[in-house]
């Protein structure tokens, strides 16, 4: 059993254990996808994309530990960067859209469907 005290020693992540992490990551991605499809609040939809970023990050870190290198960690840094940029832009847009129609309902913008 992993103890919180011995976590500092990086040990190889065996493949059966890797599968656990990948399953949790996949389940988190599926939940984020469902939330994005089903919620109608624009802010919650963007929050669900953040959840999908999260699950990708977990898979990156697990694979990085499986291969015993740090490329996964570095990619998570890039994912965090993109998430921060996306949050800044998307939330500015959301506030802008809210000022236009006084609602956060995504279906209020259904005419964009074309």
């Amino acid at each position: 059993m992993t103890s919180l005290l011995t976590l500092g020693q990086a040990e190889l992540l065996q493949q059966p254990e890797l599968l656990h992490y990948l399953f949790v990551s996949a389940a988190m991605f599926a939940i984020g996808l469902i939330g994005f499809l089903t919620r109608r609040n624009l802010i919650i939809m963007f929050l669900c994309t953040e959840l999908m970023f999260q699950s990708a990050g977990l898979a990156f870190i697990a694979f990085g530990r499986h291969h015993m290198n740090f490329t996964g960690d570095v990619f998570v840094i890039f994912v965090l960067t993109i998430a921060a940029a996306e949050a800044a832009l998307a939330l500015a847009l959301v506030v802008y859209l809210f000022r236009r129609k006084e609602t956060l309902d995504a279906s209020a913008w259904a005419e964009l469907r074309g």
């Binding site: 929050l47 990050g57 939330l91």
Partner: peptide, 30 residues
């Protein structure tokens, strides 16, 4: 989970950047 995968730096960077910065922005916008 990151800590269990011995990615300590990323675990704390995640808490600082996500829980500390990005989520605060979300709460403000909400």
């Amino acid at each position: 989970l990151y800590l269990l995968l011995s990615a300590e730096f990323m675990a704390f960077a995640l808490i600082i950047i996500y829980a500390g910065a990005i989520l605060i922005t979300y709460l403000f916008v909400i």
